[in-house]
Design a protein around this nucleic acid. Structure first.
Lengths: 343, 343
DNA sequence: CTGAAAGCGCTTACAG
DNA sequence: CTGAAAGCGCTTACAG
């Protein structure tokens, strides 16, 4: 049996013995004599008719599919933010096209281009921008015509030069608060497990942390900063490297919880105890860290809200000319992975 | 500044001083005199032209956006499977529309309908079906015309009556293998933290486990089976309930790792030690369970492959008439959360 | 309220 | 190889 062609509005109109226009109106809930309306609805039902979204979009009806681009759905941080996005999207009867760039900048540009072709009414960029001028220009070149065409864009996390509505986790302040909290515990010698320097998030968190330490007269030895991918395995490798370097830090600050989880695994594998031998702190407060042993000290970000707010920004008309910035604070949560020095 | 209309192929053709047809061909890599081709490409570049995907789809070109419906992106199980789907999709230049039903059957149907309207060339259903005749009929009513129209459908996990290509984790055999492994450790009194009975996955895992125990002459007291949502908090609540009932089980089998994580948290909060006071086992082997303390004994499923295979099934022509079934085995991995009885 | 018709932006036979 | 034209399946002024 060869696949039949799709049932079209015309089939429905014919079956109901009305014009195309009337069928369209009846299906879209516009004013139509009840009798005709019933005939149309019955015919549509019987034929299992589904309107062709492309024809609809082409003909000018608004398209209900928004685009979301994140680095990696598999990462609990992005999963949580995406969850927030989808909650709001679902509540607004919107379908979400979710793309994973797997942290490839080229692919990010390609996805924006595809979403633009899809005429998505909104595009959300979830995740830190890259501090790379070439990439920024290419991204802007895609986004500019999209915005000019009436597209809406919102981002979560800082993008240096993008003039779009943004939800900004307070990375800098959060990292500074964490520095203070750790200093209060008596630590004076720190190590940092960092992600790729090109990410704005890395610059902000590392900068905020370092600066606050400096205020207390505590320096950060370059040898105590290890750069690795923003993944569990990246954290594992970085921690292993740090130990190999013979670091004397009493406390390790991982720039994300996911890296902290890897770091803890590495310490365990080396027979070291957290927090007795060394304290570990993370950033984000992804759901799982509460259930680790010991539970992780971290900077808690309202992850789901980040996504919800971004979707709301994109959905809501920006009356003013200027971009809207929504700062979302983080809060230090001290848990079992960090201990007082000397206790 | 009012949003200008989108740049269209016609604009490009005019700028390049060629016909619409030639512009279209040049952009699509069909044979065109190099000179004309260059003019078209240059014009497109200058105007930041992006083809309208809707017009393209309407005009008959194939649409490169596939649909994926899962229960909850936020759940590490689905995140891992979705990751596999996206990897294959990305490699094939496909965009993924990912929808989260948040476990609402109604919403699942609604999403299939939307994806059908989008004329997605393929729809993937990730996650267990519901054993609910009304729901099954409604889903089939959506899927049938889609399939007849040439749509491709693949599912991960068992759907009772859906005649579509399927990737089937061997839930039954995996649970049976787990039962054997736990019996081998000397356990004779078990409890099960179960998800909603209406899910086929629950029926299979619980059935396989119970049956294997029965072969060894070990029964499962109904009071030792607690049903709760398939979430971390569901597992926490179920474990708490089990303790309140005064269960004497020496080993708890949670039907998913996510529930097992909640169970471990509940035990910890009650001051009980895993595995000294009680053993805990899960199912799925989501990435995080390796990093728990103690690491979780579980049935390891190749989560990413599940997604990859499903996407591949949907992408690859089904030459035969019949549905293809791809069974993917699970393997018991004994870790620290289970102990020998009496040791 | 209803219908005939134009138009959305492409692709693709069909001629040339 | 190139171009004029039809057609994809809708929506929406425009008449009536």
């Amino acid at each position: 049996m060869q696949p039949r062609a799709h049932v079209t509005l015309e089939d429905v109109a014919r079956a109901a013995d009305v014009s195309l226009a009337t069928a369209s109106r009846a299906l879209n809930g516009m004013r139509v004599t009840p009798q005709l309306r019933d005939r149309v609805l019955a015919a549509a039902e019987k034929l299992a008719y589904t309107p062709n979204a492309h024809a609809r979009a082409l003909a000018g009806a608004s398209h209900r599919t928004v685009g979301v681009i994140c680095h990696d759905v598999t990462d609990p941080y992005f999963a949580a933010v995406a969850g927030g996005v989808m909650r709001v999207a679902g509540a607004n009867d919107l379908l979400v096209m979710l793309a994973s760039t797997f942290r490839d900048p080229e692919r990010e540009i390609a996805y924006v281009s595809m979403l633009r072709a899809e005429r998505a009414p909104a595009i959300l960029l979830i995740g830190s921008g890259f501090e790379d001028a070439r990439w920024e220009r290419a991204l802007e070149a895609e986004l500019k015509p999209y915005l000019d065409g009436g597209g809406r864009v919102a981002v979560v996390s800082r993008h240096r030069s993008l003039k779009v509505d943004s939800v900004l986790p307070e990375n800098r302040a959060g990292a500074a608060a964490m520095a203070r909290a750790l200093l209060d515990l008596g630590h004076r010698r720190f190590a940092v497990l960092s992600g790729p320097r090109a990410l704005t998030t890395v610059a902000d968190r590392l900068g905020g942390f370092r600066e606050e330490l400096a205020k207390a007269g505590v320096g950060l030895d370059p040898a105590d900063i290890v750069e690795a991918p923003f993944t569990r395995d990246g954290g594992y490798g970085a921690m292993t490297e740090l130990l190999a370097r013979g670091s004397t830090a009493t406390c390790v600050f991982a720039l994300t919880d996911v890296m902290a989880i890897g770091a803890c695994a590495a310490l365990r594998d080396q027979g070291l105890s957290v927090p007795n031998d060394i304290s570990v702190a993370g950033f984000d407060d992804i759901p799982i860290v509460r259930d680790l042993t010991p539970p992780l000290t971290t900077v808690a970000l309202p992850l789901q809200s980040l996504g919800e707010k971004a979707m709301e920004l994109a959905l809501t008309e920006n009356s003013g000319r200027r971009r809207r910035l929504l700062r979302m604070g983080g809060e230090v949560v001290l848990r079992g992975s960090t201990a007082k020095v000397g206790s």
